[in-house]
Design a protein around this nucleic acid. Sequence first.
DNA 1: ACTAAATATTTATATATTTGCATTTGTTTT
DNA 2: AAAACAAATGCAAATATATAAATATTTAGT
Lengths: 99, 99
Amino acid sequence: MNFQEMDIDRLEMAASMLKAMAHPMRIAILKHLESGKKLTVTEIHELLGIEQSTTSHHLGILKDKGVLCSKREGKNTFYYLKHDTLSQVIDCLHRCTCE
Amino acid sequence: MNFQEMDIDRLEMAASMLKAMAHPMRIAILKHLESGKKLTVTEIHELLGIEQSTTSHHLGILKDKGVLCSKREGKNTFYYLKHDTLSQVIDCLHRCTCE
DNA sequence: ACTAAATATTTATATATTTGCATTTGTTTT
DNA sequence: AAAACAAATGCAAATATATAAATATTTAGT
């Protein structure tokens, strides 16, 4: 594997993380998970007022693409940011959409 | 227009900016535009080794969604980041894809 | 006005995403 | 073991996106 390929892999990884985040509901989810907060599927589905299955689906995408992690505790599954630094992306977008 | 709607509009705006950025080639373009750099379509198309029309198309998407601005000077059109702060998003992704 | 260079737009086809509903799987409690 | 709760999955219709090739537009130089 040469540098070129490594770079392409990395670009694709970055792109798929961004793509995972690039959805209004998923950004709303991420806003609720800033500063290390951990929330269950039900909590998120109630906070946002969207279907349970839709919520789970969105969380699955975010987890699959490396944006979130999850840990099961009994009946609940808690979701949280994989990299705290990703809150920066959300904050940055918040600032860029002020006009 | 109530706050709820305002919030939804903003989420959608943020999502469409992210969606515009969520593509390997477009991330590669953004990497070249960090720290206020301004490049022409041809420069980018040569830097990345992709078709001119493809390059223009990608730039058009980034501009349309509010990620880039452009200014024409003679035959050339220079593209640059609309918000300098967007470099943070790229840097953040760079850090998150180190594993 | 004509040509060449730089950029932009249009097309069509293929592929991917979103969403709700119904169902299923996993876990706790009785 | 059955009931109740939490989360995940499969499916299908509507919608959106990617890609590449061909064509069009804008501008500078002659």
